[in-house]
């Protein structure tokens, strides 16, 4: 295994993770809801009226975050590796998969594991595994 120490950012990643954990805690303790992004968007898409304004405001907070950040300092790098077709295929799979799997990195990976849910642990293991395998196939087997 070949670790890329130059791009390793342990402190900012740990601190960012802590903020994510704090945000998820704030949402569950205050609003009694799981901060799972795919679930929140899916619920809004299905016109589920229950808590729609709270869910929409959480999403609005996400949208505003980089704008607020930009007032104080330059945004961190946001660099893409995919073109049109890759983005569309990936988006479709992420949308479909997270709805069938009832969650994504936030709902299963952070909130689910934190409440020791076996479903979320299994889901997290599955998407991590297929994520690793997909990158392996694309980068090292097919050379795309």
């Amino acid at each position: 295994m070949n670790v890329d120490w130059l791009n390793f950012t342990p402190w900012s990643s740990l601190a960012g993770g802590a903020l994510i954990g704090l945000a998820a805690s704030l949402f569950v303790v205050g609003n009694g809801r799981i901060a799972g992004i795919s679930g929140l968007i899916g619920s809004l898409l299905q016109r589920n009226r229950e808590g729609a304004s709270e869910k929409a405001l959480f999403i609005l907070g996400l949208l505003v975050a980089p704008l607020l950040w930009g007032l104080f300092k330059a945004l961190p790098p946001i660099e893409f590796q995919s073109g049109w077709s890759g983005l569309i295929l990936a988006g479709l799979l992420v949308g479909l998969g997270t709805r069938y799997g009832s969650g994504c990195t936030s709902g299963h990976g952070v909130c689910g594991i934190s409440r020791l849910s076996p479903r979320s642990m299994l889901a997290t293991a599955c998407f991590m595994l297929s994520g690793f395998l997909t990158v392996f196939v694309l980068r090292h087997l097919t050379g795309v």
């Binding site: 992420v94 998969g97 009832s102 595994l129 690793f132 694309l138």
Partner: peptide, 28 residues
């Protein structure tokens, strides 16, 4: 459904490196 859906999500995540939270965060 849980396993299949999560595997599918991981494939999409591995293609573009974007999951739902970051996707919304970088939208604007």
């Amino acid at each position: 459904r849980l396993v299949g859906g999560s595997l599918l999500f991981g494939v999409g995540w591995g293609i573009a490196g974007i999951c739902p939270g970051p996707a919304v965060t970088i939208l604007l």
